[in-house]
Design a protein around this nucleic acid. Sequence first.
DNA 1: AAACGTTGGGAATAGGTTTTCTCAATCGGA
DNA 2: TCCGATTGAGAAAACCTATTCCCAACGTTT
Lengths: 345, 345
Amino acid sequence: MASPIEGTAKTVTIRDVAAAAEVSIGTASKALNGRGRMRTETRDRVLAAAERLGFRPNPLAQGLLAGRTYTVGLVTGDSFGRFSIPVMLGAEDALGAGQISVFMCDTRDDPIRERHYVERLLARRVEGIIVTDRRTEPRPGIGRDLPVPVVYAMTQSTDESDVSIIPDDEGGGALAARHLLATGRTRIGHVTGPEGFQAARLRAQGLASVLAAAGLEPAGEALFGQWSEEWGRQGADVLLHAAPDIDAVFCGSDQIARGVAETLRERGRRVPEDVALVGFDNWEPMVLGCRPPLTTVDMNLGEIGRLAARYLLDAIAGTPSGGGVTIVPASLVPRESTRRATPKG
Amino acid sequence: MASPIEGTAKTVTIRDVAAAAEVSIGTASKALNGRGRMRTETRDRVLAAAERLGFRPNPLAQGLLAGRTYTVGLVTGDSFGRFSIPVMLGAEDALGAGQISVFMCDTRDDPIRERHYVERLLARRVEGIIVTDRRTEPRPGIGRDLPVPVVYAMTQSTDESDVSIIPDDEGGGALAARHLLATGRTRIGHVTGPEGFQAARLRAQGLASVLAAAGLEPAGEALFGQWSEEWGRQGADVLLHAAPDIDAVFCGSDQIARGVAETLRERGRRVPEDVALVGFDNWEPMVLGCRPPLTTVDMNLGEIGRLAARYLLDAIAGTPSGGGVTIVPASLVPRESTRRATPKG
DNA sequence: AAACGTTGGGAATAGGTTTTCTCAATCGGA
DNA sequence: TCCGATTGAGAAAACCTATTCCCAACGTTT
């Protein structure tokens, strides 16, 4: 049986199909699309000819006529890094199912390139654009009054009327805090990334408000630093000095948590027996490489991507669903680093 | 000044431009493309009108006429993971510069999805396809006698006449070995991934042949296991038991190297003073998070992508450059884990 | 003044598909 | 037997741009 992927020296058009089936082009089109009324015998004859010749309608011609391209653009400033990849996969998942293809653009965080790419996408008549980035901070939009809908995923536009879909950093922090409380911890420290990052501030805030609601004080101040293991190692020492009696640390990222885990172990604190540990990101190589495997918060980035895609599809269909900023809840992924100490005896 | 990105309620065609400039459509086209002969006054009038109306030629119409789409497909089985991303960025870099846009397809390693996507790309009349994957193993091609050129990057087609561009695993292993020899190490162990991976076998072989050429025996057998930190920790113990006097370990991946580093430290061996360590991949978070920062081999994946793109561009232009399998040399990235012990006194 | 060359611009066609309109043929009913 | 209704299929327009061919007008030369 001939594979439809197999080569065709020359591209076969509907004209060829019509000729082979001995009908007019219009009839062939109707037969292929199940549109008009005709004898089933005729329809079958056309279908058979199309199959035999390996006919694939030219989407350029289709799009030209329909005024649609069934394409969207995906613009990232993150060079498709750790954060934008899952978003992108989620989006591609949702879009691909609907026969929409995705143009990929990497701006390298350069506004000039970004503008350039947006221009090109618009020239190509994409029907929508998804913008993703590494930081959840609000950023300037990619242009005002664009002729197609735009969704910001994993980042926000400074223009509040734009549609943004972001993770729930504060809720994630709260989730981690409640999990630690539920496993019996009360003296909880926090080591996280630069204070300049909204994500870091919100996660800290989520932790703080849960602690406050439980009538607890945080153990030491929230330590802002870098998104690195090295800072995790340093931060753990600072924390142990400031609050030697801590029984848990919530970290702003899995990388930081690994650094913290290492220092804790070297200082003779057992994880999770003496000190429980929660990370953030659910970045597998980090989380599983950690000793012990790390309880962490998953931002559900794939869901963010899917949501962004769905919004875009709705907007393209002319029925935009909601607007403004949508916050996607985070999930807690429990692993060994917060296992409850087994009661003695 | 009006931004060309700004919105246009209705898409403006060359017809509108022609009307605004009071010329015929044909003249407008010639003016915009600098083709025919005409008074500069006329040309300027058209250009001004186009600018004013924000005219962008419809690429569908252009493509339909020219029989070109200026698009290529990028198909990955790796869900755009750690290995295919850099390849993809390199490719996008080279293609984007040439006004070619890239369709992104994630097959999730599923042959059905792959076939589906290839179908869709061909239907969209892409002018070429790049296939990337996580493993460098030969894999079945995406189809025979396709109407467009195909390049396999970071993977190979089982069909030897297909064009593949892969990293130099063996050369990378040799590079690591020579670096260790150059820093005065002679008793070199090897911990790597599953023997089922060609990449693991080739890297081991690169090490082995350099050692043999130097008249040295490997320290212990090459240890094949998993691509994980956990295996690195275990493997290091096995190695220390089999060859307690090792002064260097070459690891098949940075993750493994981190595990090895950890065990070495816990067993009282200092890195790099007692034992030097070389990883593979140059995966930044791993390499920099390691203590000490890890010397490693970089496969130059970006270059692989750029090369793949360049080949594709040549093939599209009708002048395919070379063919068969191209191997891209690896580079050694020296860091602290192989620092030469400073001579005493 | 006539013949010729040059220049500027328009008309028409192509590209592949969808859709609307139109027409012919067939069938049923009176 | 004739008329009307219904069905099946074709012709043509539309989508938008690029290109080829052609024509008219103007200027130059003899």
